[in-house]
Design a protein around this nucleic acid. Structure first.
Lengths: 343, 343
DNA sequence: CTGAAAGCGCTTACAG
DNA sequence: CTGAAAGCGCTTACAG
């Protein structure tokens, strides 16, 4: 049981207090704190008892001053459009990373670099060594921040595959192409042949790779690729709505549509409803992400599940490994087709 | 321009380097860093130039070690049900606080205390002085964490009014009662007389106060309060759906319903649609929050806007003041009726 | 296995 | 206004 200091902040016990109570030197206490190597069981025992008795918690500032590590991680969101915050996927990711780090007793610093000014300030903060590494979440990958951090030698893991080639940056991503393939195969299996697509932004991996998967499966199935059936979106609900509208104009005989995000698919549902098309009877709709938007939509969306829990866990794992000296790594995680009412 | 260290992390410059370049003592550099009092303009100048030249950034760990302050703030989320993360309001709040703090150059540490274990760990972390203060966001206020922090003398601001009386905790909240009054008055002005309500949880201020506002206005208007027209919800979409369903059973003649959150209102729309009621023709629906859910709903929700930007700004302001020695304070912010298509 | 000692980078009285 | 010096709480070689 820790001592409760009622009212006012009492000066917390230091390693010196622990040493005195345990009847050992401060060096020995420190050794116990740092893994217990080269410490006799008796001393170990005495120190642990003293820690419990005094309610001692290590002063991280003092420790960091000497180790040069901060024992904290930055979660950096670069979002020119302030959009990512509204993305339901972002929440899952943030929560996942927070908890994965908490399991290692590492605090997460949330940093938002929306403007050029903020970007500069945060870069200085990071490169001054105030965090040991960075979990980077940006919308349009190929972000200059990623390169800057890498060039400054800051351990870094990106969420999603970086667009810039040979950038030598760690990342964790779902298998976009394979997920898209699963969805389009599913739509074809329903007998649909006029399958439209609303892509993501084509300067993002999710934009490019999901489109690639779509085209591949169609080609493999001997279905001709019709460019009128392809429009690009921006991952926003409004973008999905506009995209579906355009598709209906250009290809009124469309009987299915693969929309590259659930949020956009939600917008597409609105456009289809307005156009008098029944979902899934007239047009089957497939989304991507399996975010909250998928279950909230009416009808609920058939979609491709991105394993966000695993993604955040892997991001943390890879980052900690890199901080520990390992080389950068890329992790691609499998997706899963989730069947609901929209197909 | 700061020096770019390409590849590998070079040892950052210290106050000693700056002193040497500026031709002054480290004490003088420190004084410039800390407000520039008792420093001659010449020295001031020389130091600033040296800082620019060396790219010096203060080592916060060393500073914290001596000042006893951490110069960071914790954003603590206590959520037994992991629910808050999905709440669209939460995002706005988190982003607002992050940016308000960034303006003061103060990093925000995100902490999630979902389980008893996490709560314990985080309490130790906080009381050990690793943050200077805490922004507390909890669903059910009257949270034991708030009391523990207050008793430990940790500066603290809660989002939303604490339920426990006389708790002497700072908080920032929207005016729930007044907002509810505005909404119900609006519904009455439409000529509706059978106005139902789906409340929030009655162990939260938003639950209690919005209900109070509802009853007051009805009474003032000479409309009898019918308990069949009141059901309680849990702020979830599903809860709103179930609530509206129950209301329709108990009071089929209901011609309007005030739902205590947009998310619940979204659920209520689903239930109404299923029951064949047109919104707003048959039943007018009013929400609360003006969250993303309000504009995403079909029809878009008439609602009460909570000024989340101001709330987060005020939370930060009050917390920093309290850290600076001021007494706790309560801030109640006005709400605003936002008219859309559901009424 | 253990203690004494140096030192991490800063701030802050203390003299001047 | 300024410098020299002490000290914040820890870790880590260095002897033993």
């Amino acid at each position: 049981m820790t001592m409760s200091n009622t009212g006012g902040r009492r000066k917390p016990p230091t390693i010196h207090d622990v040493a005195r109570v345990a009847g050992v030197s401060r060096g020995t206490v420190s050794r116990v704190l740092n893994g217990g190597h080269y410490v006799s069981p008796a001393a170990q025992e005495a120190v642990n008892a003293a820690i419990r008795k005094t309610g001692y918690v290590v002063n991280r500032h003092a420790r960091s001053l000497i180790t040069g590590r901060s024992d904290s991680i930055g979660f950096l969101l670069t979002e020119p459009q302030e959009k990512l915050f509204e993305d339901p996927n972002f929440n899952v990711l943030l929560r996942g990373c927070t908890q994965a780090l908490a399991a290692h007793d590492i605090p997460l610093l949330l940093m938002v670099a929306g403007t050029e000014d903020e970007r500069r300030r945060i870069m200085r903060y990071i490169t001054a060594g105030h965090v040991d590494g960075v979990l980077l979440v940006s919308s349009h990958s190929g972000d200059p921040v990623a390169e800057q951090l890498r060039d400054a030698g800051v351990p870094l893991v990106q969420c999603g595959k970086p667009m810039g080639l040979g950038s030598k940056v760690s990342y964790v991503a779902a298998d976009d192409r394979d997920g898209a393939r699963d969805m389009v195969r599913h739509l074809l299996s329903l007998g649909r042949r006029r399958v439209g697509m609303v892509t993501g932004p084509l300067d993002t991996p999710g934009g490019v790779d999901r489109l690639a998967g779509y085209k591949e499966v169609l080609t493999e199935a001997g279905v001709e690729i019709d460019e009128r059936l392809i429009v690009s979106g921006d991952y926003s609900r409004a973008g999905g709505e506009a995209g579906a509208e355009r598709l209906l104009e250009r290809a009124p005989d469309m009987d299915a549509v693969f929309v590259a995000s659930d949020l956009m698919a939600q917008g597409a549902l609105t456009a289809l409803r307005r156009a008098g098309r029944r979902v899934p009877e007239d047009v089957a709709v497939g989304g991507f992400d399996d975010s909250a938007a998928a279950t909230e939509s009416v009808p609920a969306l058939t979609t491709i599940r991105q394993p966000y829990d695993r993604i955040s866990n892997e991001m943390v794992r890879v980052l900690l490994a890199q901080i520990g000296g390992e080389d950068p790594a890329a992790v691609i995680l499998p997706t899963e087709l989730v069947l609901r009412d929209s197909t």
